[in-house]
Amino acid sequence: MHSILLFDAALVLEKSIFVVVLFIITLTVAAYATYGERKIAAFFQDRIGPNRAGPFGLLQPLADGVKFFTKEDFMPNAAERWLFILAPASFMFVACMTSAVIPWGTELTLFGKPVSLQLTDLNIGVLYILGFTSLGVYGIMIGGWASNNKYSLYGSIRASAQMISYELAMGLALIAVVMMSGTLSLKEMAIQQAGLNWNIWYQPLGFLIFFICALAECNRAPFDMAECETELIGGYHTEYSSMKLGMFLFAEYINMFVSCAVIATVYFGGYNFPLIDPGWLGGLMGPIVMFAKTFFFIFVFMWIRWTLPRFRYDQLMRLGWKSLIPLAIINMLLTGAGVLLFDK
C-alpha cells in the first residue's frame, strides 16, 4: 500500500552496511575534529598542540576517549535522574541522525553493483535537516534543567532562545536556495550544481546568513553562549562528568561535521568540482571532493572560533532578530524576483 514499507532484503542489507559505515566515519571524523581543534587552536596561538600520544599526537582522540570512560561518573543529588541520563543520549542521537540525507557522492560501484552514496534521498532533505537541528536543543535544555544547577539552567535558557532565534534566519536563508533550485532534495541540489555552477555565486548573502546561523546552531564560538566558560562555568554541562560530558562534547563535533557537510552540499556544489568528474575512481572522487570541502569548512569553523571573542547575549539576540532575519527576508525577496525574471 505504501512505498516506504515495501522493501527487499538486498537493499536493507546494503543500507544497513551503509548506516554502519557512515556512523563509523562520522564518529571518526568527530573524534579527529577534537584533535584538529586542539591542533589548530595551538597553531593559531603559535604553539604545537598535542604531540605526545602517537606520532604528531595522532592517538590523542583515543587517549581522550579512554580518559572520559575512566573518569568518575558523578550525578548531583538533586538531579532528575532519568532526564539527566536522557539528555546527552538524545543530543548524541539527534546529532548522528542528521547525516542520513547528505549525498556524499554519486554512485560507487562495489562488487559490480552500483551503490548510491546517499543513505536516503528524501524529497524533503533540507527540511529533514532543519527538523533535526531544531531538535538538538532538547539535549541541552533537558540536560541543563535536570542538573538542578542555576548555571546549567542559564545555559539551557540561553541555548533555547538562541536556537529559536537563529533557526528562523537559517530557514529563511535556505528557502532562497530552495526557490532557486526548485527542490527540497539535497541530491537534486547537488546534481544541479555540476561543474562550477555552485549556489554560492547566486546566493552570497544567503550563504553568509546560513553560515552565521550554522555557527550559532552548533553552539560554536562566537555563539557559544550556552556553555560560555567564563560566565557560566560550562553552562548546560557544568554538572556532567565522565562519558556523559564526553557525549555532549562529541555530539557538538558531530553537529559541526554535519553542518559543514550541509554547507558544502547546499552552497558549494557538494561532490562536484570543476575538471573533476565525481564518477572517477569508481565513484570515489565524489566523496573525496565532498570531504575536502567539508574539512575546509570545519577548519573555517575552528579558525573563527580562535579568532573572534564571544558575543554578549543582547548583541547575539540583536544580530539574530534585527540583522539576520530582515537580511534573510530581503535575500528571499531578491531571489524570488530573480527567479521570476531570469528563469522562466
Binding site: 532543519l130 527538523g131 531544531s134 531538535l135 536543543v137 532538547y138 535544555m141 533537558i142 534543567w145 535558557i157 533555547s160 532562545a161 536556537m163 529559536i164 533557526e167
Partner: peptide, 10 residues
C-alpha cells in the same frame, strides 16, 4: 517539536 515546545520548555 522544534520551536513551540522549546518555547514551552523555556
Amino acid at each position: 517539536a522544534g520551536a513551540i515546545m522549546v518555547l514551552f520548555l523555556f
